[in-house]
Simulated scan of single mutants.
Amino acid sequence: MAGLERLSEELEQLKQQGRYRLPAIWESGSGSWMEMGGRRVLQMASNNYLGLTDHPRLKQAAIEATQKYGVGAGSVRTISGTMDIHDQLEQELAAFKGTEAALVFQSGFTTNQGVFGTLLGAEDVVISDELNHASIIDGIRLTKATRKIYKHKDMDSLEEALRGASSYRSRFIVTDGVFSMDGDIAPMPQIVELAERYDAIVCIDDAHASGVLGHCGKGTTDHFGLHGRVHIQIGTLSKAVGVVGGYVAGSRELKEYLIHKARPFLFSTSQTPAVAASCLEAIRVLRTSPELGERMWASANAFRSQLQADGFDTGASETPIIPIVIGDSARTMAFAARLLEEGVFAPGIVFPTVAADKGRVRFIITASHTADDLEFARQALLKVGREFGLV
């Protein structure tokens, strides 16, 4: 077909650059050990931080909701109405996050599209950390707002951007709570102080912080004790919560405004009853099971310290996200392929997701990983790391 010939050419370029890959095909449900190609493989790349994807309470909630409500929601919520299970999820999610209200979207990506696309106009300026997630970047691109980028976690750079933004109707500071590729945490106390000094709105994306940071996984705002000082909290229900979806938590006026204006909410059918019910049960599990997070953190801290002692470059990691920095794309992908041969799945992450010389395999430590699992991964890393001259 005319105009599509370039696709094969660009795919060939990806292969030549060592960046070509297709999604792995799994033959079992999500867990610490999974089936691939008829053999057991240690899964070290899943966002299932707390092991909730196969929690019996979540599975039972999904089954009961399907039996009661059916498999679909029927339409968008503003047309066919909201099922009580969706309303209950939002009420308990807001209470969990310490806000007046919450609104659930189909994914974290669409949440960012809905929030930024609705709240930001040509009269506004949005100031974004340079390493923010692609969903934040794309959400901002949908708006006509002026965009300013500040250097990663650099408060002098942020303040410089704020100084030059006094003439705008509103100033939005947007940051990830936990940065997905490096596993470091945003300096929220300093960000909030600058926002208050320059009359700016603070929006935090807690995709990798929900269920991970804060008491019982309440997120970055709770982690730093900043309740009431962070205006908008965005997150996902697809990672530590263990299911799928996204949410925004904030004031009641924010929720009502988004219900009327946010296009992803207005023009997409809502979550299935089974998804809403299992998300609701996950929030209840989080509130009553702090030991899951404690186990995850203890394992992550021990694993990171051991890898650093072995000589691996774990970058700026300070959370259960632990990258092993390799370098160029082809070398990184080859390293990941060798790990898989050794029975460890930690795919290569390369440009454009990260800088061209910062390719890495990214490990995510979960509450489901045992000490034996992590030692298995470490031994595989040591074997392959020696072959590649990393240790």
Rank of each mutant, 00 (worst) to 15 (best):
H223Y: 13
H223A: 06
F224I: 03
G225P: 12
L226W: 12
L226Q: 15
L226T: 14
H227N: 07
H227T: 12
G228S: 02
G228H: 03
R229P: 03
V230L: 04
H231T: 05
H231K: 05
H231C: 06
I232L: 05
Q233N: 11
Q233G: 02
Q233F: 00
Q233L: 08
I234Y: 04
I234V: 13
I234P: 00
G235K: 07
T236F: 05
T236D: 03
L237T: 13
L237R: 10
L237N: 13
L237A: 11
L237F: 15
L237D: 04
S238G: 14
S238L: 11
K239H: 14
K239Q: 13
A240P: 10
A240V: 15
V241K: 01
V241T: 13
V241F: 11
V241N: 02
G242Q: 04
V243Y: 12
V243K: 11
V244L: 15
V244K: 15
G245F: 10
Y247W: 14
V248W: 03
V248H: 02
V248E: 01
V248K: 00
V248N: 01
V248S: 03
R252W: 12
R252F: 12
R252H: 12
R252C: 10
R252V: 15
E253R: 14
E253T: 15
E253K: 13
E253I: 14
L254D: 01
K255W: 02
K255N: 03
E256R: 05
Y257A: 04
Y257M: 09
Y257E: 07
L258W: 04
L258Q: 04
I259Y: 03
I259V: 11
I259Q: 11
H260V: 05
K261S: 08
A262D: 07
R263S: 09
R263Y: 14
R263D: 09
P264I: 11
P264S: 09
P264H: 10
F265N: 01
L266M: 14
L266P: 03
F267C: 08
F267E: 15
S268D: 10
S268M: 09
S268Q: 14
T269P: 07
T269V: 10
T269S: 11
T269C: 13
S270P: 00
S270H: 08
S270N: 08
S270F: 07
Q271F: 00
Q271S: 05
Q271D: 04
T272C: 00
P273W: 03
P273R: 03
P273A: 04
P273N: 02
V275P: 03
V275T: 15
V275G: 02
V275L: 06
A276K: 01
A276M: 06
A276W: 01
A277L: 07
S278M: 10
S278C: 05
S278I: 10
